[in-house]
């Protein structure tokens, strides 16, 4: 337990000293501020543009902005946050393979599964913290400007969106154990998400795939019920746990 803790501590130190922690903090805070800001600025933006829009034949009717617009922005920006997060963190294993730093820790008797568990834990914890920050800022501003209660199923839609991030993280862990380079890890994770996304176009399996969880807009507008997501939710949960569980025996066999 103590060895696990010191490896986790090492991971966090690395996040702080490499500057990644602060970079991602800033990015997620900015996203959090941008969501309500963009919604707030939309009417003003449309107004200043209305003259030129009118010239091109569009008529601008005055729009009323609600908290919903802010949450639509949230669901639009969170994938970008996730992409930046994964790109920055995808080297968490591969960097150690390339430099050989893991070899020394392992020859010191550190059990291999602790490496996988620590890194998976650190990624999950960071993702959760960044996500909560982004959510919190959006929530507070939206509550201040408008009324969050118009957004239906808000907590549920935000939680399943977070879970989707956890799923992507588990894929990153799995492929980091399988591959040696950063680019192959990113390609494989991207490939999996793309497959899930494309499968989402097939009506029959649409509601089974993990990417179905990213459809937060339908939920907050009340166009969809939380019950519709149960199957996809369970499948994603199982896949997430499975990815991490498979990673451990694979890592035990891996030649470093």
């Amino acid at each position: 337990m103590k060895t696990l803790f010191s490896f986790i501590k090492k991971e966090f130190t690395e996040q702080v000293r490499s500057g990644k922690l602060w970079l991602l903090f800033i990015i997620f805070i900015l996203f959090g501020i941008m969501n309500p800001a963009i919604a707030k600025l939309t009417p003003w933006l449309l107004e200043t543009l209305s003259d030129s829009l009118a010239e091109s034949g569009m008529t601008v009717t005055s729009v009323t902005v609600t908290a919903l617009d802010s949450w639509v922005q949230f669901f639009k920006n969170i994938p970008m946050g996730l992409i930046v997060f994964i790109i920055l963190e995808s080297s968490i294993f591969t960097k150690e393979y390339a430099s050989g730093t893991l070899l020394l820790s392992l020859t010191k008797g550190l059990e291999r599964y602790k490496v996988v568990v620590s890194k998976a834990f650190v990624l999950s914890a960071l993702w959760t913290v960044y996500y909560v920050i982004c959510f919190g800022i959006t929530y507070l501003y939206s509550a201040y400007f408008w009324d969050n209660s118009v957004a239906q199923n808000l907590v549920f839609s935000v939680v399943i969106r977070w879970l989707f991030g956890m799923f992507v993280i588990s894929l990153t862990v799995l492929f980091s154990v399988v591959f040696k380079t950063n680019t192959s890890v990113l390609a494989a994770v991207g490939g999996c998400v793309a497959v899930s996304y494309l499968a989402g176009f097939l009506p029959k399996i649409k509601s089974f795939v993990p990417t179905y969880l990213t459809d937060g807009n339908s939920l907050i507008y009340g166009l969809s019920e939380s019950g519709n997501y149960t199957v996809s939710l369970i499948i994603t949960l199982l896949l997430t746990v499975a990815c991490v569980c498979i990673s451990i025996p694979l890592f035990n066999k891996k030649q470093l």
Binding site: K2, K10, T101, K108
Partner: peptide
């Protein structure tokens, strides 16, 4: 090769802990 973000005493402490 060691963790380049650590200092020598920190690295030894880490090794001792694991």
């Amino acid at each position: 090769e060691f963790y380049s973000f650590m200092t020598a005493p920190e690295y030894l402490r880490f090794c001792g802990e694991i």
